[in-house]
Simulated scan of single mutants.
Amino acid sequence: MTKGQLESKLSELFSKFEIEYMGRGPKTIRTYIINDIIIFRLSGILSPSEEKLASSPQGIELLKKVRTSLFEGGRGYLETLITDFIDVAIVSTHSDISTKTGEKIVVITVDKNLEEMCTVK
């Protein structure tokens, strides 16, 4: 599998997680592999009601807490989707959401250099 194919499949898996666990998928998702790091960049993830909620400092704080709690609750499912697809162990998972842009970044580190596993870089 090429690096591009791996990134594409991981994007599909992350989109599946967002739809099945979070209730809706992002407008766009890009996945980047750099050595032992997987970076997911999602845009258009906030619902219209979440965008309205993010118009005040208290709403931003509440939105971030709820989104973080939801993600942490489903993190095991996401990690299982990834480890069932590629033979790696998850070392750590980090995420953050921008309430200004509606963008979410998730960074996952694994125990192997994924670029070396690909046939073409």
Rank of each mutant, 00 (worst) to 15 (best):
G25K: 03
L81T: 07
M1Q: 04
T83G: 06
S92H: 12
T31W: 02
T2V: 02
K27P: 05
L63Y: 00
M22D: 10
R41Q: 11
S55I: 11
L62H: 11
K52C: 05
R41C: 08
T80G: 12
L53V: 04
K100M: 12
L53C: 07
L70I: 14
V66T: 11
E20Q: 13
T99M: 00
L10E: 02
S49F: 09
G74F: 09
D96Q: 09
S92P: 09
K100H: 10
E51S: 07
S8T: 09
S43G: 10
K104Y: 04
I45F: 02
P57T: 03
E116A: 13
Q5A: 07
F85E: 15
I33R: 01
A89C: 15
F14R: 10
M22G: 08
S49C: 09
T119D: 14
L114R: 02
E51I: 08
L53N: 06
E12H: 05
T93F: 01
I86M: 00
L62M: 12
D96V: 07
Y32A: 06
K52F: 03
T119I: 13
G44L: 02
K27T: 13
H94I: 07
H94W: 10
K52E: 10
S15E: 15
G102D: 01
G74Y: 09
V88C: 07
I90D: 02
R67P: 02
G76F: 12
I60F: 06
K27F: 11
V120T: 13
I38M: 00
D111L: 01
R30E: 15
V66F: 11
R24V: 02
F17K: 08
M22I: 14
T99Q: 00
M1D: 01
I82T: 05
A54V: 03
V107P: 03
T80Q: 14
V107D: 06
D96M: 08
I105R: 03
V91M: 03
L78I: 06
T68L: 15
I34M: 10
